[in-house]
């Protein structure tokens, strides 16, 4: 999904790297909202939910219809990537 979104934005050459957060302390230090989180230069592509804490957890995304999802909606991902890539 991420690769497809980058391609759609004409940024298919952007390098994607995976980073593993190993423990709670690292999660706190990195302000980790859960897995998967997508960042560009340490900026969250999709903003966290209000009140969402940092920790070693699976990340919850809220869809536009209010449902819970383990992944962001494609349009939200696309918008977030576009916003950060434009900066």
């Amino acid at each position: 999904m991420l690769e497809r979104a980058l391609e759609e934005l004409g940024a298919g050459n952007v390098e994607i790297s995976e980073r593993y957060i190993e423990d709670f302390e690292e999660a706190q230090q990195q302000r980790f909202l859960g897995s998967p989180s997508i960042r560009i230069l340490e900026q969250e592509v999709v903003e966290g939910i209000h009140g969402q804490g940092y920790g070693l957890t699976c990340r919850i995304y809220h869809k536009s219809d209010g449902k819970i999802s383990p992944l962001p909606e494609y349009e939200v991902l696309l918008s977030g990537l576009g916003r950060l890539l434009a900066n």
Partner: peptide, 8 residues
């Protein structure tokens, strides 16, 4: 409690 799949 926390897994988004379980919650979904």
């Amino acid at each position: 409690n926390h897994c988004p799949y379980a919650l979904a």
